[in-house]
Computed example of a mutant assay.
Amino acid sequence: MTIKVKDITPNAVVEKVAALSDDELDELCEAAEKAILDGNGFGWLTPPPRRVLESYWRGVLLMPQRDLFVARLDGAIVGSTQLLRPPPNNEAQAHAAQLTTFFIAPWARGHGLARGLLKAVEETGRAAGFQQIDLDLRATLAAAIQLIEQAGYKRWGIKPRYAFIDGSHIDGYFYTKLLAETAA
C-alpha cells in the first residue's frame, strides 16, 4: 500500500509494507545501521550484528499490533517508522497509538521523507479510529524535535535520565498529537 504524500521529492515514496524481499530487508538494515551510527538508533547506540537487525525487522512484520512504514528514495529503502497499536487487553488506552522506531538514513535526509512517514502514520491511525498518537525521544535529537513540533505534536512531559549514553544521562521528551476533534 503506497501512501502519497505532498511536498516530497518526486523520486521519494512512503509506503506501508506487510512483507519485505531479501533485498528490501538488506536496504532497511543498512539504513538502520547508518541511522544508529548517526545517533538516531531508536535505542541502539551501536549497530548490532546484521542477523540481529534482520531478526528484529522480521519480527516487526509478524506482530499484529505493529504497522511498518518505509521511506524509499530512488526505489531503495532509506528509513522507516512503526505505528504501534495498544494490546487488546488495554481497553483504557485503546484510543492512543504510539509512533516508534522513526528514522531516515543520514544521506537520505532533506527530501521530505520524515514528514511523509509522519503523515502516513497519522492517516493510518486516524483511519483505524485512534484519537491520538504518542511518541517519546531523547532531548538531544534537535532535528527530530523540530520536525515533530512543526507537525503539531505537543510536548507534555520530560523524563529525567531517559537514556544513558557515553557516560552521561540524557533527558527524554514525551509528545502527543490529537488526531480527532472529539479527542480534545
Rank of each mutant, 00 (worst) to 15 (best):
L179G: 00
N90I: 12
A97L: 03
R115V: 07
E181N: 04
G172N: 02
A163H: 08
V78S: 02
K16H: 13
G157Q: 05
D166W: 08
L179A: 00
T101W: 12
A142P: 11
W57E: 06
Y173R: 09
A71T: 00
Q132V: 09
A128E: 12
E122N: 01
Q132M: 13
G79R: 01
T101F: 10
I77N: 01
P160E: 13
G39E: 04
A12C: 13
V70L: 09
L83W: 01
S21Q: 01
I8C: 14
L118E: 00
A92Y: 06
T140M: 14
E30P: 10
L99F: 05
V17R: 00
K119M: 12
A142E: 15
S80V: 05
L84F: 06
P106I: 12
I36N: 06
Q150P: 06
Q131D: 11
A128W: 09
P86S: 04
W57N: 02
A120K: 03
H169K: 07
F164E: 04
L135H: 05
A139K: 05
V14C: 04
P106W: 06
L28Q: 05
A94H: 09
G59S: 04
A76C: 11
K119D: 13
R109W: 07
C29Q: 07
R58V: 08
A151R: 08
A19D: 14
S80K: 05
H169M: 08
W44V: 02
F69N: 00
A128M: 12
F69T: 01
K16S: 12
A142N: 14
A142V: 15
I104M: 07
I170R: 08
I104C: 03
T176K: 02
R66C: 11
L141A: 09
G116M: 03
L68F: 02
R126L: 11
Y153L: 06
I158F: 11
P106E: 10
A31R: 04
E30L: 15
D23S: 14
T124W: 08
P49F: 06
D166S: 10
V60A: 03
L61D: 00
N89H: 13
I36M: 04
K4R: 15
A144Q: 04
G59D: 00
G39Q: 02
R50H: 08
A96G: 06
L178N: 15
